[in-house]
Nucleic acid binder design. Structure first.
Lengths: 138, 138
DNA sequence: TTGGGTACTTACCAAAAGGTGCATACTTGT
DNA sequence: ACAAGTATGCACCTTTTGGTAAGTACCCAA
């Protein structure tokens, strides 16, 4: 990594420069917001699709349960990354979209997605190996 | 609505292509590798400092316990993101460094760190609000 | 000899995270 | 009439995660 690390670098005794409140560094702050099994996926999905209805999201993010999806959406909303719009219609209709803050975070997520795509074969291989010794040799 | 958003969306946010094994997309693949409370921090720290001895890492990443740090290092090693070097000296001496794969992942983490740094005030504010209603007003 | 440092390992636990299934109140399609 | 879809809420429970405290084997300095 080149030396234009926005945080620190000097004689470092810590992972990053501690700055505000309780965060050890910017990465730490970010990680707390996106901690949650599906949050990054939700953000990323919303970044791609714009306002999305609950049911659509639910179907898009495979294997998530209602309880957890709702829960994480609420947290994202409380964290001001996502905006919930309730149309107060009679069969319920609600949609979710990114706030500007959420949108910028989603952008920061893009490199991770790109990395995963580019290295998917590698990652899959590693996983295959792990799974095989876990279940015992052939 | 089509759920095959991946190929119909704006090229700049579009980096997610569902293809291989059990991953829904690149982001999903990446997230599985860095899932773990301290993993991103470990990767980021190693990216900054080069080969680092265990004890140094331990002291750099505040509040991590031996058990967990070791455990996550092992997983990172199994995932071929980190390389462990044991000098087999008499008072134990070991150090950890990034593999090329790990290094590229660490690069992808940089925007998250940057985002966190740039929006730290915002994030801190949001957290303060949450904490206050959680514990009741002063 | 006692104490500290090195890099771990293990047993035991508490808390957090996530999942399941049922319920709601109302509408539309069959 | 009845099933299905809509967006949740709630009680309950299992899995996962992380943490604590202790131990190991060895060396060096006081």
């Amino acid at each position: 990594m080149s030396s234009e690390l926005q945080d620190t670098l000097p004689p470092q005794t810590q992972a990053c420069t501690p700055t505000l409140p309780g965060f050890t560094c910017g990465l730490d702050a970010t990680l707390r917001l996106i901690a949650g099994k599906w949050k990054p996926l939700i953000l990323y999905f919303l970044a791609q699709g714009g306002p999305t209805r609950y049911g659509e999201l639910r179907r898009a993010i495979r294997d998530v349960s209602d309880k957890v999806l709702i829960q994480q959406l609420k947290e994202l909303e409380a964290d001001e990354l996502v905006k919930r719009t309730d149309y107060k219609e009679v069969p319920p209709r609600v949609d979710y979209s990114l706030t500007p803050l959420g949108h910028s975070l989603a952008q920061a997520l893009v490199p991770l997605c790109t990395w995963g795509t580019e290295n998917m074969a590698e990652v899959a291989r590693v996983y295959a190996e792990r799974d095989s010794w876990k279940r015992g040799p052939a």
